[in-house]
Amino acid sequence: MIRLLVCCAAAFLALTSTAAACEGQVACPLGDRSYHLRVPDNWDGQSALPVLLHFHGWARQGDLIVRHDRIATKIVADEVLLLAPNGLNKTWSFQRAASPDTAFARAVIEDAASRYSIDRERIFVSGYSWGARMAWRFVCEDGDGIAALLAVAGTLPQDISCATQPAQVRQVFGLDDQVLPFPFGPGGDQTYPVALWREAFACGTGRDDGPWAARSFLTFQRTSWDCPGGAVVLDVHPGGHFIPHDWIPLQIAEILAAEQGD
């Protein structure tokens, strides 16, 4: 009996130590692939956690994302479970429908849910550059139940067909982006980067919300649409190809604050 208890205790310790090791710079294995996660600093160990699934840029991996000072900061660091899948060969398959990375990313969410209590009504999907395009692909194919798409400096072609859609979309893009040039629409239309979602949500005329800034050195011009099918926000800035300071955590904070105000 004692030997049995010792064996059970050893097995339990092995499982808990393995779970504890799967965090931060130590990747969580998932089949023949892996992902990184960051548990929020203020978690009480029981409450269901909002989730941010973030797709890294080209030639990066998830270990950077969970310590990124423009992603894993503010409300994300304090209150959100951050999931960072690792792309095969440090890239993503977003060009065509039925992306294998869509299924992999969904498996990441489910694996994390087996480890931690997650709030399935507050799952956010974000990405930067190549990862923004993958984030678009994910919500196009598996977006039902996703609280918001938060895309930075990357889109998909506006004439593709999306089988699913998130509850809302927020996009940021630099007018001087030299890596993925700003996708101007007909006549130089600056709202074109979200044309697909405006059509999917049956949006009307957008609202000019004027300039705003997260940091004093970068000003955004915001246009927003409150639509029958969901909400769309586009932030445009004069800069290039980068993740603006605080933009991702501020979008999550705004969305969660609006929910609490209802």
Rank of each mutant, 00 (worst) to 15 (best):
126 S>I: 05
165 Q>W: 00
178 Q>L: 11
143 G>M: 08
105 A>M: 00
195 A>N: 08
121 E>S: 04
192 Y>V: 07
121 E>D: 12
135 A>V: 06
124 F>K: 05
185 G>M: 11
90 K>E: 15
197 W>Q: 09
188 G>Y: 09
133 R>H: 01
88 L>N: 05
153 A>E: 06
132 A>R: 09
201 F>S: 01
114 S>M: 09
132 A>V: 06
137 R>E: 00
116 Y>P: 07
187 G>H: 13
166 P>G: 12
144 D>N: 14
123 I>H: 10
129 S>R: 02
159 D>P: 07
164 T>G: 13
145 G>Y: 11
110 E>W: 09
164 T>V: 12
209 D>A: 14
151 A>T: 07
172 V>K: 00
116 Y>M: 06
173 F>C: 08
109 I>L: 12
121 E>F: 01
178 Q>F: 04
194 V>K: 02
98 A>I: 11
153 A>R: 01
140 C>M: 05
155 T>M: 03
169 V>A: 10
159 D>Y: 10
128 Y>L: 14
99 S>F: 04
97 A>T: 13
167 A>F: 03
162 C>L: 13
112 A>L: 09
165 Q>D: 00
183 P>M: 12
107 A>W: 04
190 Q>G: 06
122 R>C: 10
120 R>C: 05
131 G>T: 06
90 K>I: 10
191 T>Y: 03
101 D>N: 10
158 Q>D: 12
97 A>R: 13
93 S>G: 14
110 E>G: 07
153 A>W: 04
191 T>Q: 13
129 S>N: 04
122 R>V: 04
149 L>H: 08
196 L>E: 04
168 Q>D: 05
160 I>F: 14
157 P>E: 07
210 G>V: 15
206 G>I: 02
187 G>C: 15
116 Y>D: 05
160 I>S: 09
136 W>Q: 01
91 T>Y: 08
170 R>P: 04
176 D>S: 07
96 R>I: 08
165 Q>S: 06
98 A>V: 13
159 D>G: 13
114 S>E: 11
148 A>G: 07
183 P>W: 13
204 G>L: 05
107 A>T: 01
155 T>N: 10
95 Q>N: 15
125 V>I: 10
109 I>W: 07
142 D>F: 06
160 I>A: 11
205 T>N: 15
179 V>T: 13
184 F>G: 15
136 W>M: 07
89 N>H: 03
96 R>A: 10
93 S>Q: 15
117 S>Y: 01
194 V>W: 02
99 S>A: 14
118 I>N: 00
209 D>N: 13
121 E>N: 08
89 N>E: 07
203 C>G: 01
157 P>Y: 02
140 C>D: 06
171 Q>Y: 09
180 L>G: 00
137 R>S: 04
92 W>I: 08
132 A>K: 00
182 F>P: 03
211 P>G: 14
151 A>Q: 01
110 E>D: 15
184 F>H: 15
92 W>N: 07
182 F>Q: 10
135 A>C: 11
123 I>L: 05
200 A>Y: 06
139 V>G: 03
136 W>H: 12
